[in-house]
């Protein structure tokens, strides 16, 4: 029995599944913090796809991009959580359904 060879498509499929789970979380959950975690999940899945392409093309460029995405994700988490904290101070809630002051 020949072994299952893990190829680029396996990693990309896993990345797609993780992205989908993150997307469902970001769209369905109403807690702002959990929505943020879901977005982190999506960023991670994209990183995984980058790393997989880097590996199967054996090219370091993809890893540089993962590094840059990680930097952006770190900034985004810091700024986003600060915004959530500021919202909580003003509105006493992190439920996104109630945070609709910007809706017209």
């Amino acid at each position: 029995m020949s072994p299952i060879v893990i190829g680029l498509d396996h990693f990309l499929s896993l990345s797609a599944v993780l992205f989908g789970i993150g997307m469902i979380g970001a769209l369905v959950r109403r807690n702002a913090i959990t929505v943020f975690m879901s977005i982190e999940l999506m960023l991670n899945s994209v990183n995984l796809a980058f790393a997989a392409f880097a590996y199967y093309r054996w090219d370091t460029t993809g890893q540089v991009f993962v590094f840059l995405v990680m930097v952006v994700a770190a900034c985004e988490v810091a700024a986003g959580l600060a915004i959530i904290l500021a919202l909580f101070r003003n509105k006493e809630t992190v439920n996104l359904d109630e945070l609709n002051v910007m809706r017209w």
Partner: peptide
């Protein structure tokens, strides 16, 4: 939203398998 996410996943897996 769930349906949209599943659609996105299906498309991406389709692309992955075409690779």
């Amino acid at each position: 939203a769930v349906a949209a996410a599943l659609g996105v996943v299906l498309v991406m897996i389709g692309v992955a398998h075409s690779l």
